[in-house]
């Protein structure tokens, strides 16, 4: 409890390359991620900070990443419409704002492109992320791919509707009765 803010080193035993899971399968990532707020990176295609992307929104080799405190206004959502993908940052895995952002992007604004989780993306959060509309998961470097894939299917039932499922369990029960 008292050690809440203390950062623990990741254990050394795990693989050191970061992996991308897309639609439940491991894929090779063609995008580079840049956190530089001012300059565009050399390599392309690149995911860049939202503010920087907005200056170059017409380029199809750039895509934005949203900080977790982004206020997703209708204007912003309309601008994101043309992005090849939208990444949402998890600065710490305990920052749960990204789940709401993803749901709003999908459910409220109907964004149909890739929504990618970046940052502190850990195995034990993937199931919830998927339910909230993330279809691409850029795992933190130390995360084991095999366990990550397994975690996606940890549950076969859920009580609430979310992006993956439009029907709450109470409605399903009534339908099946």
């Amino acid at each position: 409890m008292q050690n809440e803010q203390e950062f623990q080193e990741a254990p050394e035993t795990v693989a050191a390359t970061s992996a991308l899971i897309k639609l439940g399968k491991p894929v090779t990532d063609t995008w580079v991620l840049s956190r530089d707020e001012e300059n565009l990176p050399e390599s392309r295609p690149a995911i860049v900070p939202l503010a920087l992307w907005q200056q170059h929104a017409d380029r199809d080799d750039l895509a934005p990443w949203l900080p977790s405190d982004t206020e997703l206004t209708p204007e912003l959502a309309a601008a994101l419409e043309k992005a090849a993908l939208v990444a949402i940052d998890f600065p710490a895995f305990t920052d749960g704002r990204g789940y709401t952002l993803a749901r709003l992007l999908r459910e409220r604004f109907g964004y149909a492109g890739e929504v990618r989780a970046i940052g502190d993306v850990l195995i034990d959060q993937l199931y919830y992320m998927t339910r909230c509309g993330f279809d691409a998961l850029a795992l933190r470097e130390d995360q084991e791919l095999e366990s990550a894939l397994k975690a996606l299917t940890a549950f076969s039932v859920s009580y609430q509707p979310a992006v993956d499922l439009n029907e709450p369990l109470f409605a399903r029960r009534l339908r099946e009765r």
Binding site: F93, T94, D95, G96, Y99, T100, R103, Q125, Y127, Y128, M129, R131, C132, F155, S158, Y159, Q160, A162
Partner: peptide, 8 residues
Amino acid sequence: TLHPEFAY
């Protein structure tokens, strides 16, 4: 229970 949006 296991609300996907509100675990953090």
